[in-house]
Amino acid sequence: MDAPDLVSLLAGQRLAVLTGAGLSTDSGIPDYRGPDSPPSNPMTIRQFTSDPEYRQRYWARNHIGWRHMAATLPNAGHRALAALERAGVVHGVITQNVDLLHTKAGSRNVVDLHGTYARVVCLSCGTGMSRADLADRLEALNPGFIERAERVGGIAVAPDADAMVSDTSAFRFVDCPNCGGMLKPDIVYFGESVPKARVAEAYSLVDAADALLVAGSSLTVFSGLRFVRHAVAAGKPVAIVNRGVTRGDPLATVKVDGGCSELLALLADELAEVARR
């Protein structure tokens, strides 16, 4: 199907939107599974919590990656969804991304399903801090690390704010300044469950909408697919915009194979016009 089918299905509907890594590729953040994605084996929660060497590697790479992600700007797809929210068409966004680009674009009702790169939490006492505050501590322990890594070149940032850095063996990381416990990015790792309250908030967005729009997600993991199944079970139409096949295609009312930026920009123009009539 093509863009007119998408507009026809969603015109006059109040939308919940589910987004994935494919929406942020035009902002320079590669997805995990696309043809231009760097080789990446996302760290599991078990690896992170059980092995200090994994934590050392992660924090060294994240020390580079989070800065690149923080400097990333929203693209036309993010801006289109923010415009549709202002027009009263989009009720809210559920995102599997941790890049905060929806918030940067101006979307107000956003459920960051997998957390964000910008916060760190202690697994023992729950103390939280900003990633910027942690960066100052890590930089003091590892002076010059960023400059040395960037001189080597070839840095590529993954969707979880990880980065490809060749030598992490000398990197020093820190524990919680409050209790000495293990610090972890406030990101849901592979093998880790999304907090129940966050899932409930996302379901509420779908329940309050007339239709669900999926943009840039392969729906490979259940974390996102469950909202498609929930919408279908409630009799709500589902539209999917994504490059390539998704796990939700058999459930979709309309599936458009294409890039998110151009299609969402077109959709925003058309649906906002319908809303003004």
Score class of each variant (00 low, 15 high):
K236G: 09
S107R: 01
V188T: 10
G77R: 14
T19A: 03
R243S: 12
V206P: 01
A3W: 13
N142P: 01
D36N: 15
P35K: 09
S107E: 04
G128Y: 06
E270T: 09
D175H: 15
S204K: 07
I187C: 03
G128K: 15
R79G: 01
S124C: 08
D26V: 04
E139C: 04
D160F: 09
A231G: 08
W66M: 12
N62T: 00
H91Y: 11
I146D: 07
L266Q: 06
D26W: 07
P195F: 10
A197D: 15
T253P: 07
A140I: 05
S217P: 03
E150H: 08
L183P: 00
A21R: 02
A234Q: 14
P4K: 00
D257P: 01
Y189W: 14
L100G: 00
H91Q: 12
R198I: 12
R148T: 11
P30M: 05
A158P: 00
S107D: 04
N97V: 09
A200L: 14
I155M: 07
A197S: 14
W59C: 04
L84E: 01
R137Y: 02
S218H: 04
C260T: 01
D186E: 13
A265D: 14
V199Y: 07
H78T: 06
V165G: 08
P52V: 03
A158D: 00
A158F: 01
G248D: 12
S204H: 11
F48A: 10
M69L: 15
V188M: 09
D160K: 11
L73I: 05
R67K: 12
D162K: 12
G181V: 03
A170D: 13
R33G: 10
A158C: 08
S24T: 09
L263N: 02
A71Q: 14
K196Y: 08
R86N: 05
Q56C: 08
A118C: 13
D136I: 09
R172H: 07
D36H: 15
G92N: 07
R276Q: 04
R55I: 13
G181P: 05
D249F: 04
A132E: 15
R57P: 00
A233F: 11
A60P: 08
S37V: 11
R226S: 05
N75G: 14
K184M: 12
A234S: 11
C122N: 10
G106N: 11
R198T: 14
L212S: 03
N142A: 02
A197H: 14
S40K: 09
L271V: 06
V93S: 10
S124P: 03
E147F: 11
H102F: 13
D36K: 15
G181M: 06
A234F: 05
A161I: 02
S204R: 13
A272Q: 06
A132L: 13
P52G: 04
L84R: 03
R172V: 12
V199H: 01
G106S: 14
A140Y: 10
T253W: 06
T116C: 13
G259R: 07
G115I: 10
P35L: 06
T95A: 11
G20P: 12
T253N: 11
A275S: 15
V254E: 12
E85L: 01
P74M: 13
D112A: 14
A200C: 10
G92T: 05
A76F: 02
A82E: 01
W59N: 04
A3H: 14
E147L: 09
E273V: 13
V121T: 15
V152G: 03
D136E: 12
V199T: 15
T116H: 08
R79D: 06
A209K: 01
R33N: 11
N62G: 09
L84F: 02
L18T: 04
